[in-house]
Write a protein that binds this DNA or RNA. Structure first.
Lengths: 332, 332
DNA sequence: TTGTAAGCGTTATCAA
DNA sequence: TTGATAACGCTTACAA
């Protein structure tokens, strides 16, 4: 955009203040004057410079979001909910993926300088930088991490779902379990899932870590696990993608799921419904997490609320066929 | 961020011009002076305001991207490639999803005012607005649409792949085909796929439109198609998601794929490898499309290049098991 | 109801 | 080598 408020003012024969007022409705403007201004705006195809507006208003009307990687449906879904609500609230969304980046701190600081508030996933941002951001007064909302002072946190319930899942598997009669995708960091969603399942199952479950929570890593780890001497009867996975990898590994080894080994996931991504067998999993409201994050951030930014809030959304056990045979077929 | 260049200048006992020079290395600064400045910057934890910098520099150091919806892996993958390269080039990425939005034009204009250039998918933006953006000199790159003057376009090859796919299916002996997800708009990827397949198959293929290119829509349309009197032997789908829906429909109807009906997709998304049966599809380099778009935009913005360029990336037929039985099993 | 002018936080030109 | 100062494009008291 090239034409400025000065040219509009000149053309309309008024001052720039009047143009601004007429356009924003922020002060009294005579009907006839408004007419002239709007006409000039129309003719010149004027759009106020975002930079000018932001500088004067002291706000960006934009939100940031920091995620490790966009691969996989989980982050995408959250992003979708976030962008939708942000847009409703008149805010753009600036994204930043940290995976494989050097100088993450610089990137995040730059991002923080472009927006009014930040949504951050789990422990994507180094703790010292988080502290600094809080100290600088940057509005922050975290998804999937433990509460901290000075920022909102938002997460899905994990422990109770883990217990429900464990109970369901126990009901199938399984006695030897493995947790595939054992947590690498503590304090995040996966760690809670692991703790929950373990506390319900006791010593009957073994932790099997994966490099990342991806299909490929799940595949590799499951191949070793299932090919080994001590095959578990049921594999509880950290999330659906790892579980899909496990399904693949089982197939390659000629094992039937759930006949030879049961497999469960977590999240309920699209592919969980389309895999064979369909995945038993725990559904978490990914899109809603994003939507709520956008609203929370807005509250923090506008000052409607100034004390941090820590919210936990409920989840739902989705029983499909990968965990064992059920008397009457369940479908979703 | 709160501290300005003035406070740094005062603390260092120099002028703001000197601070700016010292920080950007854009003019001569005495070693001792630089020291003082850096010290003050450090102590005050100063970061130049992005708004101030952008206003003075006359550039945003940010790119925009406009997509219909982020649901599904296609857009995500492209976005991933785009953001990665943009970040390398020192540019942030501002996203805009248009699906379900009223006042799309306003949103897009706002976005255009926040960035130095825009990546736009297909026909997401109304043609008159495209023309206006071109006229205003906004740098534009399109993915998956026909070339137009004043902007770069980038797409994957479709016609030859369609012919290859058709030939492969014909090789299986099929004679009655359906194209599921028939194009609603012309001039985009899906239309090219349809035209390509049809020109190879002649009258033997029937067009079956879907409301959207999603699993659910694919499912619905496929259910009607497969449940009808005139079941095709092979269903060529507009993309993998529609194909996954078709797979689901076949299963629900008790039909074996590929025994009773063959199904093929397009794109080669993650789920295509994990479905049962695994999808025969055409792989297009989604991430590379995004990466190239970012570079193209950068060339346009920096002025390294000023004539539009229209690029077509090659694709690859990926034969798996959903299209029929193969003598020796193919895997990917 | 309208205009003048002081910010907002930088960069960069031009003198000194 | 450094410092005033004029942009950059807007919003918004404050005066008129």
């Amino acid at each position: 955009m090239d034409v400025t408020i000065y040219e509009v003012a000149k053309r309309a024969g008024v001052s720039i203040a009047t143009v601004s007022r007429a356009l924003r409705g922020t002060g009294p403007v005579a009907a006839k004057t408004r007419e002239k201004v709007l006409k000039a705006v129309e003719e010149l195809n004027f759009t106020p410079s975002r930079l000018g507006v932001s500088l004067a208003e002291g706000r960006h009307a934009a939100n940031g979001i920091v995620f490790p990687d966009l691969a996989g449906p989980y982050y995408t879904e959250v992003l979708l909910g976030y962008e939708e609500v942000a847009s409703e609230l008149g805010r753009s969304v600036v994204i930043l993926s940290t995976k494989g980046r050097t100088k993450v701190n610089d990137l995040i600081k730059d991002l923080a300088g472009r927006v009014d508030g930040l949504l951050i996933f789990g422990h994507t941002v180094p703790e010292p930088l988080v502290a600094e951001l809080v100290r600088l007064g940057v509005r922050l909302v975290f998804i999937s991490r433990e509460p901290l002072p000075g920022a909102d946190t938002l997460r899905s319930e994990n422990t109770a779902s883990a217990h429900a899942l464990a109970a369901h598997l126990t009901g199938h009669g399984y006695e030897r379990f493995a947790f595939l995708g054992a947590p690498l960091t503590s304090q995040d969603d996966v760690d809670e899932r692991w703790q929950g399942v373990r506390s319900a199952l006791g010593g009957a479950i073994e932790a099997v870590p994966t490099r990342e929570y991806t299909v490929d890593c799940g595949f590799e780890a499951a191949r070793d696990l299932l090919g080994g001497r001590n095959r578990p009867e049921a594999i509880v996975c950290s999330d659906d993608e790892v579980a899909l990898g496990a399904l693949l590994a089982a197939e390659q080894l000629g094992l039937d799921v759930p006949g030879d080994v049961a497999v469960t996931g977590w999240d309920d991504i699209m592919a969980a419904r389309h895999s064979r067998p369909a995945l038993t999993t725990v559904r978490q409201p990914m899109r809603e997490l994003g939507a709520r994050a956008a609203r929370a951030l807005d509250e923090l930014i506008t000052g409607v609320r100034d004390t941090p809030r820590h919210l936990i959304l409920t989840t739902e056990l989705v029983v499909r066929s990968s965990c064992g045979h059920h008397p009457q077929e369940v479908s979703t």
